[in-house]
Amino acid sequence: MTTFQLTHLEELEAEAIAIIREVVAQFEKPVMLFSIGKDSIAMLRLAEKAFAPGKLPFPLLHVNTTFKFQEMIRFRDEFVQSRGHQLIEWINQDGVKAGVTPFNAGTQRYTHVMKTEALKQALSHYGFDAAFGGARRDEEKSRAKERVFSFRDRFHQWDPKNQRPELWSLYNGQVAKGESIRVFPLSNWTELDVWLYIYREQIPVIPLYFAKRRPVLDRNGTWIMRDDERMPLEPGEQPQMRSVRFRTLGCYPLTGAVESQATNLREVLEEMLRSRTSERQGRVIDYDEAGSMEQKKKEGYF
């Protein structure tokens, strides 16, 4: 007799597919955030499976801060085109005009303008009523409490004290006009699960995740890759060539690299299993204060 006990990856996969389908059934105009990172890539694969053999019934949205790794943009365009998806790119032109960069505005203000505000602009501009994000509950403490269907008021704000109870797999997507939800199909996945899924599914990922000799600067004990000339050097500072890779990807001036020799997925997985630090360590944005993520999320950050 066949047994139908699912493995944990199969169960997570089924759960994510059900969530994605539920959004399409309940909402008029969903969009999927596509940040080009591993979580986005895994989430996109799940969406493809959810609607196979058909195409995705929603577009992808990339909020471009203009400081993404150049390689990310190239990979994004090739990947999306090869899969036949529709991609919307959004840049906060007000921020560009005001000349906001991570170097002159400070990370908090830069992130607020080029990420949070940009995202809200894009969602309002297109009138999306549901937005998928690849965030996971294991990433950060305030995320651990967020719902799969996370309600946002018409100002895109999250109220952590007033979340809808979420039972079984009965997701309540009822919203009034102008309100929306953020949806997290990977809520119950861990970093390891995502990598294992990518490994199992043999999904191509951006090579920045694999070790290579790259020009990096030591900034407060964090290896930052100088991806272009816009990043000012300190007096006498010279980029060094180091074999590094990235555990998360974002804006290059805010993303720390780790020294590594892992040049393929198998090696990355082994390195991760032996690792003693979490992936968020490489993110400058969380450093400030416990609760900084919660504050950003209340304001509309993903």
């Binding site: 944990h8 305030s142 952590p160 416990a290 609760g291 919660e294």
Partner: peptide, 20 residues
């Protein structure tokens, strides 16, 4: 998880944790 709750010294919602 949440800052305000931490200051009160109690958890007041459902939080999810993962290990293997």
């Amino acid at each position: 998880g949440l800052q305000a709750e931490r200051e009160q010294g109690i958890t007041i919602d459902v939080a999810y944790r993962y290990f293997s």
